[in-house]
């Protein structure tokens, strides 16, 4: 199945391209996708699937859009 992946901020080192199409076997989880890219820091990252936050155990399905970022945003109040 095909899913689209975008890395943001410092994590762009894993893939520069926005919306990179990746072929993965059916039934994989987010953790498999992270393995695929060799993502080292599995703690301080945020994963959005179709714009909703999920964790590593989330199962992926055909056509999912995955965004992987560090939670580095901030601001005043």
């Amino acid at each position: 199945m095909q899913i689209k992946v975008t890395f943001y901020g410092p994590l762009k080192r894993y893939a520069q391209e926005d919306g990179l199409a990746v072929e993965l076997p059916a039934g994989v989880k987010v953790s498999d996708l992270l393995d695929h890219f060799g993502v080292e820091d599995r703690i301080y990252i945020v994963i959005l699937v179709n714009n909703g936050r999920v964790d590593e155990e989330e199962a992926l399905k055909e056509g999912d859009e995955v965004k992987i970022l560090s939670p580095i945003g901030g601001g005043g109040s």
Binding site: Y8, G9, L48, N51, G52, R53, K67, L69, S70, I72, G73, G74, G75
Partner: peptide, 12 residues
Amino acid sequence: TGLGVGIPDYGA
């Protein structure tokens, strides 16, 4: 307002 560009600013 919000975090700007570069990093998706998301809500749920």
